[in-house]
Design a protein around this nucleic acid. Structure first.
Lengths: 139, 139
DNA sequence: CCGAGATCGTTTGTATAGCAACAAGGTTGC
DNA sequence: GCAACCTTGTTGCTATACAAACGATCTCGG
């Protein structure tokens, strides 16, 4: 007999990842409607490490050059970040948090932590640690 | 002292999920360039349960009505699925696999399983089971 | 039988996300 | 000092995703 491979969609890591991500995004956008998860990641990184060139910021938040441009443009339109020319390198665009961006990030930090918590709610503390450790190794 | 909440982006479940998903998508598109993960999910579901109405197919693959429409349209343009009117319900559009769609799914099933395997490669067998079990509970 | 409400599919708008190509500006080797 | 190469940012293209609004159709209660 020819071996018939069984492919169960529900058991595939990619499909499960997509569904978990969907649930997480829903929780996030309900709790923090002002910005998206991606935009919040940029604010968080800027708060953490300070002003960055646009491309560098993209690498620091796992986005390619085209993606980070769009995210920065939208954050700038919302007045959460500002861009300025780099005097030492005329190609570079330095991105920094505005006062409103800083205020938003500080004001929403606890909520964002609660969102992560809510996403992991079905798991015990030990299970959460285990999951995060395993997932981190798949990066 | 005011309590300063520490928010480490790299420790947030949403950010880790995004990065793991990115790696998975890269592995998939290298191995199976003909279709995307989402499109493959639709082919897999159709192969599993047979022809479905478009909206029902969307629910069975975790996509809303607008998303499944785009996916079905692109798969139809590639001649991997075909749509036909439902004689019993004039609102419904029945989606089914074409011969080419069936052939593609059958021909790529082993590769798709290998993609899942490759995504989980950094983990031991026991760890993979643990991860999948934990992730499934976050759906 | 009929009207209220639900379902189905479509369209529009916004936001990632990645690829490819490109121009302008830096850097390095020789 | 300059040619080859790399980096930076931009643009265009394709593909999810979800929300909101819409018309057509179906179902079900009374």
């Amino acid at each position: 007999m020819k071996p018939v491979p069984t492919y169960r969609l529900d058991d595939q890591i990619g499909y499960v990842l997509r569904r978990v991500t969907q649930r997480h995004l829903a929780i996030f956008s309900e709790a923090i409607p002002e910005v998206t998860t991606t935009q919040f990641a940029v604010l968080a990184r800027l708060a953490e490490v300070g002003p960055q060139s646009q491309n560098h910021l993209g690498r620091a938040t796992a986005m390619d050059a085209a993606t980070i441009k769009g995210v920065v443009d939208r954050l700038a339109k919302l007045d959460f970040v500002a861009t300025s020319a780099d005097p030492d390198d005329r190609r570079r665009l330095t991105v920094s948090l505005t006062d409103a961006g800083t205020a938003l990030f500080r004001g929403r930090t606890q909520t964002a932590l609660a969102v992560s918590d809510l996403t992991l709610e079905p798991l015990s503390d030990a299970e959460r640690l285990m999951l995060m450790a395993l997932l981190s190794r798949l990066t």
